[in-house]
């Protein structure tokens, strides 16, 4: 967990990280990488705040379903393929007992994509004001670029 002791570089340890993410489901690996990193930061007692916009608002669409893998691939891949949202849900719940993660979905981007009313529990539909506060309150900001 978090310590007030300086880190190896002699700096004050990071307490809060803001991540800005615009990549959605099934586009690129970025969401998975972000969640892998978020999990590691939470394990270290660092609070993680994610601002999801553009296609990233689809990551927390609660209506996404697991899809079955083709029968020939099941021995290798397993029975089904879970959506990334499942991982987000686990990290949000992990915050109940450790460092917390907040996940804010941009309201305009969600409305444009018809997913505003389909956000999973724990994901907050918010505005650019939330992004402003995330960035202003963060010791470290990580902006994941959008590219196709």
């Amino acid at each position: 967990m978090h310590s007030d002791e300086p880190g190896p570089s002699g700096r004050r340890r990071v307490r809060r990280v803001a991540i800005v993410l615009s990549t959605g489901s099934y586009q690129r690996e970025a969401p998975t990488t972000v969640l892998r990193l978020a999990e590691k930061l939470l394990e270290r007692g660092i609070e993680v705040n994610v601002w999801a916009f553009e296609e990233a608002v689809t990551l927390t669409n609660q209506d996404q379903m697991e899809h079955n893998e083709p029968p020939s691939l099941r021995p290798v891949l397993g029975e089904s393929h879970a959506p990334v949202g499942r991982f987000i849900d686990q990290l949000l719940r992990a915050g109940l007992h450790g460092a917390k993660m907040d996940w804010v979905t941009c309201i305009l981007c969600a409305q444009e994509r018809g997913v505003e009313k389909h956000q999973m529990g724990g994901a907050i539909v918010g505005t650019l004001g939330d992004l402003w506060k995330f960035v202003g309150g963060a010791d470290q900001v990580i902006a994941i670029p959008a590219y196709r």
Binding site: R13, V14, L37
Partner: peptide, 19 residues
């Protein structure tokens, strides 16, 4: 690995560029 990366981020950077 990402454990190492998380340790480094926890220690703080002046700037992070994600390409």
């Amino acid at each position: 690995d990402l454990d190492h990366l998380a340790d480094k981020i926890a220690d703080g950077f002046d700037n992070i560029l994600w390409y």
